[in-house]
Amino acid sequence: MFDYCVIGGGIVGVATAHRILASRPGASLVLVDKAASLAAHQTGHNSGVIHSGIYYEPGSLKARYCRRGAQWTKEFAAAHDIPYRVCGKLLVATDSAEHDRMVALYERSVANGVAVERLDAAELARREPHVTGLGALFVPDTGIIDFTRVTEALADRVRTDGGRIVLGAEITAIDENSDAVTVSGPSGSWRARRLVVCGGLQADRLARAAGLPITLRIVPFRGEYYQLPPRRADLVRTLIYPIPDPELPFLGVHLSPTIDGGLTVGPNAVLGLSREGYRKGGIDPRDAREVLGYRGFHRLAAANVGTGLRELRNSLFRRGYLAQCRRYCPELTLADLLPREAGIRAQAVLPDGTLAHDFLIERTARSVHVLNAPSPAATSALPIADHIVAQLDI
């Protein structure tokens, strides 16, 4: 029997395994994941941004852990020779409504203790000649990194500290009693005194398998990206974001330099009918039934018909997607939008149709379940891990 079992090979699960062993030398731990490699889903399919914490409700877990996690991520990367770059981020207001939201976002950033600078249109044009807008917020501490490499380095630390990592092992049953928790699936079973579940796209299913009385459901949203051609790689020096809609958890289509020297644009946010199907148009019958049969999704869809139709249209027709980008970078053309693999966001939706905006973690006597950990979870992984470790002591 192990002291600890962690389900989930994304960055949050691996960071948690690392922090457990770092704080409990000599403990035995096994981490299991059904994928053939670590960081196979959300961790390995994001834009690689080290977020600053500007967006989030003051006092929320996201606001607290993102700011702390950004610094920890940079320190961890430096200590393990993982390349990263602090390039800064510009949030660009392109009309009067966005300008008003920009002012409110500036006030939120101050409340969150995030360094930020307000720019007028002239200063924006001076700093980024290919970007246009009424003004912008500049967040200097935002960076870029490869979170898959961070996850692999964390996994190396887990192994060095005596932990075992088992891949290709799907968990279909969780049995908890007063003495231990047993997790099992087609590849075998593992028994531990304490369990942590960082299930990502499967978080709700694993929680129900463990007997948690949850009513939320994970609804997958596809985030479709494009890669700009190499000749466009120096189009911008910083990350370029629109001013987000505060009612939605998505940050909008943005231009993102990548740590390997590329430049991507995206993502949008389209309902996915396959939790782990990255091919456009892919449908998993079970996933589709669970989403379309969930009353919370019906209420969410009814409240966001316009937004949903717009995202779907832009997914089907590149011209609509391009129009979103050209609001702040008007010289982009259809020829600039080259195919790139999509990502899928695991978004917890409640029965009343509202989205779980903050990180959401529940526990039983012997287990801790991470039920909602979308962006900025990669940036926040180490503080989230410490929060989970503290929960294990309760």
Rank of each mutant, 00 (worst) to 15 (best):
G266P: 14
G320W: 10
R237E: 14
F317P: 02
A323T: 09
G343S: 06
G282Q: 14
P244I: 00
P339R: 12
A288H: 09
L337H: 02
L263I: 08
Q347E: 09
L255V: 02
D352K: 05
I283V: 15
L235T: 00
I259Y: 02
L350K: 13
L338T: 14
D287Y: 07
F250A: 04
L312H: 06
A269S: 14
G281Q: 12
L271E: 13
R326N: 11
A346E: 07
A303T: 08
G282A: 14
L251R: 07
D260S: 12
A301Q: 03
A269R: 05
A348W: 12
L322R: 11
Q324N: 09
R345C: 01
G308C: 06
D352E: 08
A302D: 13
R326Q: 15
V236E: 01
L322Q: 03
N314S: 12
Y241I: 02
R286I: 09
L350W: 11
L255T: 01
A335N: 12
G281A: 09
R310Y: 02
C329T: 15
L338D: 12
G296S: 09
P230K: 05
R299N: 14
R345N: 00
L322I: 07
Y328K: 10
A301W: 06
P230R: 06
L235D: 00
C329N: 05
V291K: 10
S315P: 02
